[in-house]
């Protein structure tokens, strides 16, 4: 990850960002995304599918609403 990428991620905290590098860092999203990936790789079976591969077939299409009457 480049320095610019890291700065951009900090911006998502809403507390600091590329325009204000001196502002206090309260939420470090790089560390948070690392924590998520660590959790997933340690605890989830490798064949567990992303929700996006199955959710639409259950709720978005079969029982869901695509606007037609």
């Amino acid at each position: 990850m480049t320095k610019d990428d890291a700065a951009a991620r900090l911006a998502i905290s809403g507390l600091t960002g590329p325009d204000d590098p001196a502002a206090p860092l309260v939420v470090d999203w790089t560390a948070r995304s690392r924590a998520l990936v660590d959790f997933v790789t340690r605890n989830l079976p490798p064949d567990l599918p992303p929700i996006t591969t199955w959710i639409s077939s259950i709720e978005g299409v079969a029982a869901g609403d695509r606007g037609a009457e």
Binding site: A11, I12, P18, L36, L44, L48, P50, I51
Partner: peptide
Amino acid sequence: REQLIAGRTFTATEYLHAQRYRTYLR
């Protein structure tokens, strides 16, 4: 603007891990 720029920096693997975590939670 800053949030949209930040959103570009997550990798495809991070995004898919997040979506796999959603299945785990669901």
